[in-house]
Amino acid sequence: MIESARLILRPWLDSDLDALAAINADPAVHQWLGGPISREMTQASIERQCGYQEAHGHCFWAATLRDGGTLVGMIGIQPVRFEERFTPAVDIGWRLGSEWQGRGLASEGAKAALDHGLNVLRLPNIVSFTAVGNRASRAVMERIGMVHDPDGDFDHPALAADHPLRRHALYRVK
Rank of each mutant, 00 (worst) to 15 (best):
M1T: 02
M1C: 01
E3P: 01
S4Q: 11
A5H: 09
R6V: 02
R6Y: 09
L7Q: 03
I8Q: 11
L9A: 09
L9R: 00
D14R: 06
D14K: 01
A22Y: 05
N24E: 02
D26R: 03
P27V: 01
H30V: 02
Q31A: 10
Q31R: 14
Q31D: 05
L33M: 08
G34F: 04
G35D: 03
S38E: 00
E40L: 12
M41G: 13
Q43S: 14
A44T: 07
I46V: 15
E47V: 14
E47M: 10
E47D: 15
C50P: 02
C50V: 14
Y52Q: 12
A55K: 12
F60L: 15
L65F: 09
L65H: 11
G69D: 11
T70S: 12
M74H: 06
I75S: 07
I77G: 04
P79W: 08
R81K: 13
E84P: 02
E84L: 09
P88S: 11
P88Q: 03
P88T: 07
G93A: 06
W94V: 07
L96M: 10
G102W: 02
L105E: 04
L105N: 00
A106T: 01
L118D: 02
V120C: 10
L121Y: 02
P124N: 03
N125Q: 13
F129N: 08
R135S: 12
A136Q: 11
R138Q: 14
V140R: 10
I144M: 05
P150K: 10
P150S: 11
G152W: 05
G152N: 00
D162L: 05
D162E: 04
H163G: 01
L165D: 05
L165V: 00
R166V: 06
R167M: 02
A169G: 01
Y171I: 03
V173Q: 07
